[in-house]
């Protein structure tokens, strides 16, 4: 019976000090092969020093339809930002 190789998401750290960033995806039979393929597909020109692969089906993503209830409440909480607070001009740095 035919079984297709699963899909993996690839994250690459471009250099130490930076976070791993999503680069794309690829198909591979297992995690080890996914790493090897990711190295060939996404880092042919020194783009990375570290790779993570995660099977796509293991990622839980938020639904854009819920963006309102998820993200809009933060919009009117301007008191979470430093510019909300009044300071006398004499205070140069705070």
């Amino acid at each position: 019976m035919k079984k297709n190789w699963p899909l993996w998401e690839v994250f690459v750290r471009s250099k130490n000090g930076l976070e791993h960033r999503h680069f794309g995806s690829l198909h591979a039979a297992d995690a080890e092969m996914a790493l090897e393929n990711a190295r060939d597909v996404y880092t042919r020109r020194n783009e990375g020093v570290s790779i993570w692969v995660v099977e796509s089906k293991d990622i839980t993503a938020s639904n854009p339809e819920n963006n309102g209830e998820l993200f809009e409440p933060a919009q009117d909480k301007i008191y979470r930002h430093p510019t909300f607070y009044d300071l006398p001009d004499e205070v140069k740095h705070m």
Partner: peptide, 24 residues
């Protein structure tokens, strides 16, 4: 290296295309 890049470019584009719900 050029031919290898072309394989890579095909793969980037196939994965991008799969995000629209069609399988490889």
């Amino acid at each position: 290296a050029k031919v290898q890049d072309e394989a890579g470019h095909g793969l980037y584009l196939y994965s991008a295309c799969e995000t629209l719900g069609i399988s490889r």
